[in-house]
Amino acid sequence: MSAQATASHIGTTAPASNLLLAMDGVTVDFDGFKALNGFSLTLDRGTLRVLIGPNGAGKSTLCDTIIGRVRATSGRVIFKDQDITHLPEHEIVRRGICRKFQTPGVLPGLSVVDNLMIAAKRDRRWWSSFRHGVAAEEKARVADILETIGLADRAAAPAGQLAHGEKQWLEIGMVVATRADLLLLDEPTAGMGPAETSQTATLIRRLVGQHTVLVIDHDMSFLEQLDARVTVMHQGQFLKEGSVAAIRADADVAAVYLGRAKENTHHV
């Protein structure tokens, strides 16, 4: 049980059984540029966490590292007490982590319902794709998600024809449909207006509990609506963690944002 030992070694305050994800001193080195620099993070089951930081802080690289798109130069990613640092991407997803990409990653040529059906399929091994029929449970889940993301009347439309915000929701729906324990949502409100952003916040809050959710976003009003614990990253390292209000009032955080780029001032 070395994985258990690792969990306690990281020193989380929660009991080990409640711990879902632990990043242990992860460094990602792109030819000398450290996108992540000894970064550690733990997420408990059923919680919501927001990750912010100036451009280039390493937020997307963090998601990429968890999901296996980018490999850690050193350090480990522990998920459900197992080391997933070097697993193939699809194997990591099958363990229960799914990611929404920054630019919507829906399949434009497929209908909305087919996008969700592919995501909802439990048995994702290639030979099972020759079997006929769809499990009633998968169908029900897809119908349920279509309602939740408000696309029930667009089910037959090609995903490529959806508006930008609808594509974002569809991809969130796909990520949820996989039944992943951990959802990584990279800028889920990019390109959305205030009304859509608010709906997205409601949607995400409903997911928490059944899923653990890690959200990356910049939009301060969105963060306030999510009302979750916030982790601030800076130059690939941990900077601060706290409530939205505490982070907003924090002098170090303000310095990082103001010092980095003036155009970010309206965000935080």
């Binding site: 999901i67 991407e89 699809h90 099958r94 990409f101 990653g105 399949l107 434009p108 994702r124 290639w126």
Partner: peptide, 12 residues
């Protein structure tokens, strides 16, 4: 249409 999206939905 989207090999990466499919890979990150858990398919090889």
């Amino acid at each position: 249409d989207g090999e990466n999206r499919i890979r990150f939905l858990g398919y090889d």
